[in-house]
Computed example of a mutant assay.
Amino acid sequence: MTQKLVKANGISINCEDRGPADGTPILFVNGYTSTMMSWPDELMDGLRDKGFRVIRYDNRDVGKSEKFSGLPKIADVVAAVREGRKPDMPYTLADMAADGIGVLDALGIKRAHVMGISMGGMIVQRMAIHHPERLLSVTSIMSSTGNPDLPKASDEAMKALQAMPPSEEREDVIRHRMKGRRVYQSPAYPKSEEDLYTFVAREYDHMYYPEGGIRQYAAIMGDGSRVAELGKVRVPFLVVHGHADPLVPHAGGEDTAKSVPGAKLVSIDGMGHDLPVELCPQYVDLIATHARAAEQKAAAE
């Protein structure tokens, strides 16, 4: 389970292949500013116990993957999308999707299941749009389509996401991020103070790089609506979303499932914008069942 840098899509991407080597690959794609360390062990181990080859990686501009330069103006990016112009930004969600496909290339994998949370859900949607031949199935969790008509995040959740810590000192950053996560956590499954501290500290210690978040946010805002493109997707598609998500409201999951032909939506009561360990057995069963059905369909074809 050693992490290593690979060349993917022309850049350096930090990844970890948990195996087993003979399992069907499943690629985990992180959300906005989060690193590969954000995935619960209960989810990864659960899928590995089901026989999947578990692979996770740091998106560009976070963790130990390659960092970029240039600070786009978010207002200009939003205006460009609204006016139908190409936004001026360092990279796109399509580029980030190509990074994940590049990880598969580097590991010698022809086809894989992919799953993504939040921004990672948007990235796997882009994989399904641009690289369908590389995918066995898609699972999009607590994500959305970029449809501008959907309900927005609550004011409190957006403030929590965008607020800056009082200093760059480790303890200040960790405590600040804990406070933010409390705002959009799953209300039915709150983490203890100790568990939340451990979770946030693990991400910080992997690498703290706030500048990358500005470019990732530009990529999200600059992608616009994927609804029309998702209508052409034929990859088996599962959508999982919490009814209590204040950051990406449940309507985002509904719109994703409605946009992809044949997609299945599973809505979970008490789930906010995180992956509670209490729900991991349910996630494992949902993802494994979806993936195995997709494999059977592919074999039949």
Score class of each variant (00 low, 15 high):
residue 104 L to E: 08
residue 57 Y to E: 08
residue 112 A to E: 07
residue 87 P to C: 03
residue 73 K to Y: 06
residue 78 V to M: 10
residue 93 L to G: 03
residue 59 N to T: 11
residue 79 A to K: 13
residue 46 G to M: 05
residue 54 V to Y: 01
residue 74 I to S: 02
residue 46 G to P: 01
residue 102 G to M: 06
residue 46 G to C: 04
residue 7 K to Q: 15
residue 113 H to G: 05
residue 104 L to T: 07
residue 58 D to C: 10
residue 29 V to A: 02
residue 62 V to I: 15
residue 23 G to F: 07
residue 100 G to N: 13
residue 15 C to I: 12
residue 46 G to T: 05
residue 108 G to T: 04
residue 8 A to F: 09
residue 62 V to N: 06
residue 45 D to S: 09
residue 66 E to Q: 15
residue 101 I to W: 08
residue 20 P to G: 05
residue 76 D to M: 01
residue 99 D to T: 13
residue 101 I to N: 07
residue 87 P to I: 05
residue 6 V to T: 12
residue 86 K to G: 06
residue 28 F to M: 11
residue 45 D to G: 00
residue 94 A to Y: 03
residue 27 L to P: 04
residue 16 E to R: 13
residue 94 A to D: 12
residue 72 P to Y: 09
residue 25 P to Q: 08
residue 16 E to L: 12
residue 97 A to I: 04
residue 97 A to D: 02
residue 24 T to E: 11
residue 57 Y to S: 10
residue 63 G to E: 09
residue 51 G to S: 08
residue 89 M to W: 00
residue 40 P to K: 01
residue 42 E to V: 02
residue 97 A to V: 06
residue 30 N to V: 14
residue 58 D to R: 03
residue 108 G to I: 04
residue 103 V to G: 09
residue 36 M to D: 04
residue 56 R to W: 00
residue 68 F to G: 14
residue 27 L to V: 15
residue 52 F to I: 10
residue 26 I to K: 01
residue 70 G to S: 04
residue 14 N to Q: 12
residue 74 I to C: 03
residue 108 G to W: 06
residue 95 D to A: 07
residue 32 Y to T: 12
residue 49 D to S: 13
residue 107 L to R: 08
residue 74 I to N: 03
residue 15 C to V: 14
residue 44 M to W: 00
residue 37 M to V: 14
residue 7 K to H: 13
residue 33 T to V: 13
residue 38 S to V: 14
residue 74 I to P: 02
residue 60 R to Q: 06
residue 73 K to N: 13
residue 76 D to I: 00
residue 31 G to Q: 02
residue 106 A to K: 06
residue 68 F to K: 01
residue 53 R to K: 05
residue 107 L to V: 04
residue 87 P to R: 00
residue 65 S to N: 09
residue 47 L to Y: 03
residue 79 A to G: 08
residue 45 D to T: 11
residue 57 Y to D: 09
residue 32 Y to P: 02
residue 47 L to D: 05
residue 27 L to F: 14
residue 11 I to C: 08
residue 113 H to F: 09
residue 14 N to E: 14
residue 101 I to R: 09
residue 83 E to W: 00
residue 13 I to F: 10
residue 43 L to T: 06
residue 8 A to Q: 13
residue 38 S to P: 00
residue 97 A to L: 08
residue 61 D to P: 03
residue 78 V to N: 01
residue 91 Y to F: 11
residue 87 P to M: 04
residue 29 V to M: 05
residue 97 A to N: 03
residue 31 G to H: 05
residue 83 E to T: 07
residue 92 T to H: 06
residue 105 D to I: 00
residue 33 T to D: 01
residue 28 F to T: 05
residue 37 M to A: 14
residue 77 V to R: 02
residue 90 P to M: 01
residue 52 F to G: 08
residue 47 L to Q: 04
residue 40 P to N: 04
residue 57 Y to T: 12
residue 63 G to R: 05
residue 25 P to L: 11
residue 46 G to W: 06
residue 67 K to R: 14
residue 28 F to I: 06
residue 59 N to S: 10
residue 56 R to V: 15
residue 57 Y to N: 09
residue 78 V to L: 07
residue 68 F to T: 15
residue 54 V to M: 09
residue 111 R to Q: 15
residue 113 H to A: 07
residue 36 M to T: 10
residue 6 V to W: 05
residue 110 K to H: 11
residue 69 S to F: 04
residue 32 Y to V: 11
residue 13 I to M: 10
residue 71 L to H: 10
residue 54 V to L: 10
residue 113 H to S: 02
residue 101 I to L: 13
residue 104 L to R: 07
residue 20 P to Y: 04
residue 69 S to C: 01
